[in-house]
């Protein structure tokens, strides 16, 4: 090495492997992901649905991932995106709800409070260039007031009467815009959810045919056992997908 280059490297602070890599581990891309969550208000509260697939890249690797969870007494959280980040968020929320309960003073965090808390967490993490790789849907009922909102991985947040993450935003929301109304019964709501989930199942390659529906009302959250939708793949067009689209080999 020529002497002229020596001053560039301080012998006491020679760059070593650890200082370069160890302090900058962050989520650069997600590993195991869940796909769409669909949710909307109905007569008694909020309905939410998500399938149970966990994709490792494009491999459908896990089939029983619960992506809808109750938070405290009044809220329901659904997540798409990185599953491990969602589990971390659930740990944050468990602690939040625990400390809230420890006051034991009759006050409790409602869906609005939890939604805003999540907004702060997500935006704060993106400001550290270390985002939690999720789209979150938060629904709930408190004091007769229905609440439904979304938070993105960079902290964008809003409330709406019906929301959907990921592909659902493209495929389910148009259906909801046409067919949703605030005073739907539970049965009509489930039918509408299934319609959305069926479209997603057909057109979203990461969707799996095992889904959970959840509701939250003034009485609390209920997450129903997973089940499958009836599908029909026997259409002529499915039989020989490459017919009429001949490739070069």
């Amino acid at each position: 090495m020529s002497l002229s280059k020596m001053p560039l490297v301080d012998a006491n602070h020679a760059p070593d492997a650890s200082s370069c890599t160890l302090d900058s581990q962050r989520t650069l891309y997600p590993y195991v992901t869940g796909t769409s969550v669909v949710a909307f208000k109905y007569k008694d509260g909020i309905l939410m649905a998500a399938d149970m697939g966990g994709s490792y890249g494009s491999t459908l690797r896990y089939k029983t991932v619960e992506r809808v969870k109750p938070i405290g007494k009044h809220s329901l959280l659904g997540a798409s995106g990185e599953i491990s980040d969602f589990q971390e968020i659930l740990r944050y929320l468990d602690e939040l709800i625990l400390y809230d309960n420890m006051w034991d003073d009759g006050n409790s965090l409602g869906p609005k409070e939890v939604h805003n808390y999540l907004t702060r967490v997500m935006y704060n993490r993106r400001n550290k260039f270390n985002p939690l790789w999720n789209s979150l849907v938060l629904g709930g009922v408190k004091n007769g007031q229905k609440y439904l909102g979304m938070v993105s991985m960079i902290g964008v947040n809003f409330e709406d009467n019906h929301v959907a993450t990921g592909f659902g935003n493209h495929l389910a929301r148009p259906i909801l815009r046409d067919e949703w109304n605030e005073n739907m019964s539970f049965e009509d709501g489930v039918k509408l959810l299934e319609k959305c989930m069926r479209v997603l199942l057909y057109r979203d390659r990461s969707a799996v045919n095992k889904l959970q529906i959840a509701k939250i009302t003034e009485e609390g959250a209920t997450i129903y056992p997973p089940y499958s939708l009836k599908t029909f793949w026997g259409l002529e067009a499915y039989k020989n997908p490459t017919a009429g689209a001949e490739g070069s080999w």
């Binding site: 006051w103 003073d105 006050n107 805003n116």
Partner: peptide, 12 residues
């Protein structure tokens, strides 16, 4: 108010 967008309960 910043974190929860709601007023702090007086008792707390």
């Amino acid at each position: 108010a910043f974190t929860y967008e709601s007023p702090l309960p007086v008792g707390r």
